[in-house]
């Protein structure tokens, strides 16, 4: 975040909603703003690192994630094991690195689900209004009535723990946010001159939605996606910490905390490093998301902290 306050910013920018292709300039502006925002730059750098580790983790990791060595269990950090070893003598650094992939995967897939479903719902609801709007949005209200983690836990409980169900559960939980953000955007775009013009020359609904509406609501969606990634990763970590996410021997940060909990008093590194990895990842997504929001979504259509689940 820059020195400017959010309030003054929104003052500057609420006016600029008219032009047909708003998003190009906006994106450019967003990128340049990111370049000049040290926090956002840091966040981006962390994310880039994360992606590299997520993709190439197994090759970069100093040792195999399932290299059990009982004689070296619970060793403190050292040159050969910078993050120490766990209760099976496995290298914690390697496991933290490889687990990055799981976190990213869960984040991307679940937010992907939420994005596709939520945006579709939001578009239909906002564009067609009427009973469809009512039905769809009441459904979203229903999902919204459950605390995030509670609903996710309930879904996982029913479908059975695992990577796939965790992704589905988190995806479902974050769908209503996207539906609401999209609908709000559509409602404001719908009445604008260029959309009315398109309607009057007989353009098809699909064409109008794809060519005119979507590009104009892209900005809040981008912001929402970035922020949701942070919460999705946090949710996955929480599920895994409850033993309901990724199952062993696959490493996941939350699961590592869960497995290491019995030993943290004698092996602090089992508690510190996986937790720090979650924190940094979420922080990075939040920093980038906040910076994007300051530029792209001055009206704050996006929903963020208030939906962050505690516990």
């Amino acid at each position: 975040m820059s020195e400017e306050t959010e309030a003054t910013r929104s003052g500057e920018e609420t006016g600029g909603g008219g032009a047909g292709r708003r998003s190009d300039g906006q994106l450019r502006r967003a990128l340049s703003a990111l370049r000049h925002d040290p926090l956002a730059l840091t966040g981006t750098a962390v994310l880039a690192l994360l992606v590299v580790v997520g993709v190439a983790g197994p090759w970069l990791a100093p040792s195999g994630i399932n290299e059990v060595n009982i004689d070296r269990m619970l060793e403190a950090p050292s040159w050969s094991h910078p993050f120490g070893t766990d209760e099976l003598g496995r290298d914690v650094l390697s496991r933290v690195m490889v687990a990055a992939r799981v976190s990213l995967q869960v984040g991307l897939v679940s937010v992907g689900i939420a994005l596709v479903v939520g945006v579709t719902f939001g578009l239909f609801a906002g564009y067609y209004r009427g009973w469809l709007d009512n039905v769809l949005m009441r459904c979203m209200d229903v999902l919204f009535a459950f605390p995030v983690l509670l609903l996710a836990v309930a879904i996982v409980a029913v479908l059975g723990p695992g990577l796939l169900t965790a992704m589905i559960a988190i995806g479902v939980v974050y769908t209503p946010i996207f539906a609401r953000v999209t609908r709000a955007g559509v409602l404001s775009v719908r009445e604008q001159v260029f959309v009315r013009a398109a309607v009057s020359i007989g353009a098809s609904d699909l064409r109008i939605i794809v060519r005119h509406v979507l590009p104009n609501i892209a900005a809040p969606l981008i912001v929402q996606t970035s922020l949701s990634l942070a919460f999705a990763i946090l949710s996955e970590a929480a599920l895994s910490f409850l033993g309901l996410g990724v199952q062993p021997p696959e490493p996941a940060w939350g699961r590592m905390l869960y497995d290491g909990r019995g030993f943290v008093t004698e092996a602090w590194w089992l508690g510190v490093f996986p937790g720090a990895a979650i924190f940094l990842t979420v922080l990075a997504f939040n920093l980038v998301g906040d910076a994007l929001r300051d530029v792209l979504d001055p009206r704050q259509l996006t929903v963020s902290e208030s939906r962050r689940s505690s516990g």
Binding site: I278, V282, G311
Partner: peptide, 26 residues
Amino acid sequence: ARVFSQFGVSVPDFWMGIMGILLFAG
């Protein structure tokens, strides 16, 4: 305040809980 709030929104609460137990109880 802003550092604090950014920290609070990003930190996994269960991790903070574990650290809290280690420090204040341990």
